[in-house]
Design a protein around this nucleic acid. Structure first.
Length: 744
DNA sequence: CGTGGGCGGATTTTT
DNA sequence: TCCGCCCACG
């Protein structure tokens, strides 16, 4: 018996519920962890507990997350608690771990040794090519849909042979395309994301000895964000845990927001059926938000059905009421937020403490404009990530070809980039030959250029020679030197440099910046390669292949205007897992949030509600809900109703921000900034006196258009213009001078 | 082969 | 309204 270790550092920082979960016996455990209740803490302390109290070898621990970020955080925190790098335990994403298994057992998995990973962009291109190669109409067979069909079947563990078309010719065609796609992947030696998971699952399912080995090894399996698992992920977990294992799953059914991409909240319930002896723990004490914010969130989520049930509470301060602001339109909404941010910053807060959250990315625009006008630095999350940028993907395609000539996706991407006289016709011919012979494009091109002379054959041979030459020349170089060499010799640098030269005379500043940014990104790629350490993998992959896999599996940080302290703007989905002192939940309108497409389906609607719950529970101190009475959507004016979610928040903790009464003259700027609490529901956009009777929201009559409501007023006197929404005629701008509007 | 204009579509996103 | 993709033109 080893001496009993001091477990205080593990258990002391925990509350009672957390402690119970962390020190649970070795039985299946399900932890329902509410927002801000210390979920990650429980997971990391559990790992420490297994090692120190249960004397588990780190070697026997497998901890799975969804994102690389979460995996990294978990690793860091485990290290922190243990006071030393934990060593050999596997902490990673589902995909990362599946990838690792497949590298270790590529033969058993039926993969080529140097297989590479196809990201969803590559996958889409490949699907599109298959559709075209089969002379199918792309509007009838949309690549997106076919891609979705393939992925969702893989997510459910279904191969083409498992699918029945019934009497449905559409479905039959889909299944056929799925099969063709699989063949294409096999020929090229690539696997997509869903394939990683499915292959890893099949690897164990069909290899009893291998499975036995890993079951023996990974006696302790832990999963984060369990509510986000899809069918294949859960099936994989069950395989590795085995019927007698004791998986430790942490999740929150109320934060399940990825049903639309295959996540199955039901797995939480299923877990309890599959492991009837499972112990259930609830973490309900929240350490993040004020009582008011929690009351709002609890009230909202209470409208969902079929919850496992959980009520967040706090020992902390009651906090301020939820602020509700009804804006005229999206511009007003954004200006309101900008003014508030300015106030908070003036009050000594960091801009980074403020988050503007919205349902869809398009909403960011109005806020950006308001922030620019108000000279408030901001960061928008949600652009392309580093490894997703076109110039980076082009470069990676060269590198992929260096390591595998049969990678058709890579071949197509760069065979004529920069242009070298290999046109669509030529490639079309190659595809045909490749398809007929069941070989890769590279091989087809080799055959062609060997057999023929002529310009086309020469061009093809030129490309083949280039790739072969690059491979020779970079052999033995360090990774970053390889990449640098490839960038220069392939002509990619020159290609992008030329772009720049062309742009400058035209004074196209945007263009100029763009191509400069591309060159910078290429330089960045080289330095990323320089600092890329392969030491973390025990896979013994050649550095280039390791780097390519890394690029596919971790596409890098979201691009955002880094550096300066700025207001954070992002979608609600992206905000999951984050927290901010000030949260503005914007665009709280029917049709936008809940989104139109989710309103007719109860399941989808409840997911929207969970999304709203996620948004609210991001807030630590101050939560604002804003909506616009008028909003331009796709260039059309709409008059949405306030979101039902607003009404689902207990009204006694909501305070409506009454729009500033901007009376003419006199009022100081500082005074004008303060929104008046309560009282008169009048608001004027202009500092000048508005035309009499043209209060916003007032009913008016027009000689020709009939009755309507004033939406907007600009200017004063005879030149004033008002915008009126007429019951019959729609919305119109009218000059006061001529309109002859009669207040009602 | 590259580009510009016309057309259609327009949540959410990780790996 | 705006952006991305496709096709037609130079």
């Amino acid at each position: 018996m080893r001496p009993l270790m001091n477990l205080d550092p593990i258990l002391n920082p925990l509350n009672e519920a957390q402690r119970a979960a962390v020190s649970a016996p070795l039985v299946p455990v399900l932890v329902l962890a509410g927002a801000g209740s210390g979920k990650t803490r429980v997971l990391t302390h559990r790992i420490a507990w297994l090692i120190q109290a249960e004397h588990a070898s780190p070697y026997s621990i497998l901890a799975v997350t969804f994102t690389n970020k979460a995996a990294g955080e978990m690793r860091g925190r485990v290290e922190q608690i243990l006071g030393a790098p934990p060593g050999v335990l596997w902490i990673g994403t589902f995909h990362g771990i599946a990838h690792r298994l497949l590298r270790l057992h590529w033969r058993e998995a039926g993969l080529p040794q140097g297989f590479q990973i196809l990201d969803s962009d590559d996958q889409q291109r490949l699907v599109k090519r298959i559709i075209r190669a089969n002379d199918l109409d792309e509007s009838r067979w949309e690549p997106r849909e076919v891609q979705w069909f393939i992925n969702s079947n893989k997510d459910e563990g279904r191969r083409p042979k498992d699918l029945k078309s019934g009497n449905d010719p559409t479905r039959a065609q889909m299944i056929r395309l799925y099969g063709l796609y699989e063949e294409a992947c096999a020929r090229a030696g690539v696997v997509d994301f869903a394939e990683l998971l499915l292959r890893a699952y099949e690897l164990w399912r069909d290899g009893p000895e291998l499975l036995a080995h890993y079951r023996q090894r990974f006696r302790h399996v832990l999963v984060d964000e369990f509510q986000d698992t899809n069918s294949i992920q859960y099936a994989w977990l069950r395989l590795i845990a085995g019927p007698d294992g004791h998986p430790f799953a942490v999740g929150d059914d109320d934060q399940s927001i990825y049903r639309w991409r295959g996540a199955r909240v039901e797995n939480l319930q299923q877990f309890r059926r599959d492991y009837p002896t499972a112990k259930l723990y609830r973490l309900e004490q929240n350490y993040r938000s004020t009582a008011a914010i929690l009351a709002a969130a609890n009230g909202l989520i209470g409208h969902n059905s079929g919850r496992l049930g959980k009520t967040l509470w706090t020992n902390g301060e009651p906090g301020l009421p939820i602020q509700l602001y009804a804006a005229f339109n999206e511009r007003d909404e954004a200006e309101f937020v900008a003014r508030r941010v300015a106030d908070y910053v003036a009050g000594g807060n960091r801009r980074g403490d403020v988050a503007v959250l919205y349902r869809s990315n398009a909403q960011s625009r109005a806020f950006e404009e308001a922030f620019i006008a108000g000279r408030i630095p901001y960061r928008v999350y949600g652009g392309l990530r580093f490894f997703e940028r076109a110039e980076i993907k082009d470069s990676l395609a060269y590198l992929r070809l260096l390591s595998n000539r049969d990678d058709d996706a890579a071949y197509e991407r760069v065979v004529n980039l920069p242009t070298r006289g290999i046109g669509e016709r030529t490639i079309e011919g190659l595809r045909e030959e490749a398809r007929n012979a069941g070989i890769s494009l590279w091989k087809a091109a080799t055959a062609r250029s060997d057999a023929q002379g002529g310009r086309t054959a020469n061009a093809l041979r030129g490309f083949q020679d280039l790739i072969d030459r690059l491979a020779r020349e970079t052999a033995g170089l360090a990774l970053h030197e390889q990449i640098d060499h490839v960038l220069k010799e392939s002509g990619l640098i020159e290609h992008h440099g030329r772009e720049k030269a062309q742009d400058s005379p035209r004074e196209g500043r945007g263009e100029m910046a763009r191509s400069e940014a591309r060159l910078e990104n290429l330089a960045e790629l080289v330095s990323a390669a320089r600092s890329f350490g392969t030491e973390s993998t025990d896979l013994e992959l050649p550095p280039l292949e390791a780097f390519l896999a890394h690029a596919a599996l971790e596409s890098g940080e979201r691009q955002s205007d880094a550096g300066e302290d700025g207001v954070q703007m992002m979608t609600l989905h992206m905000a999951k897992g984050l927290e901010f002192r000030f949260v503005f939940l914007c665009g709280m309108e029917e049709g936008l949030f809940p989104h139109n497409r989710c309103m007719s389906d109860l399941e989808a609607l409840e997911e929207e509600r969970r999304l709203c719950y996620v948004g609210m529970t991001r807030a630590m101190k101050h939560l604002y809900l804003t909506y616009a009475e008028q909003r331009r959507v796709h260039g059309m004016d709409t008059h949405p109703a306030p979101s039902r979610f607003i009404k689902e928040v207990p009204q006694d903790i909501v305070a409506e921000v009454r729009p500033r009464v901007q009376v003419a003259r006199a009022v100081t700027a500082a005074r004008m900034r303060r929104e008046q609490p309560a009282a008169p529901a009048i608001r004027f956009r202009s500092e000048e006196p508005p035309p009499p009777g043209m209060r916003l929201g007032a009913r008016v009559r027009h000689g020709k258009f009939g009755e309507g409501v004033v939406l907007n007023v600009e200017g004063s006197g005879p030149h004033a213009r008002v915008q009126v929404s007429f019951e019959q005629q729609g919305t119109k701008w009218l000059m006061m001078q001529y309109a002859n509007l009669e207040p009602l």
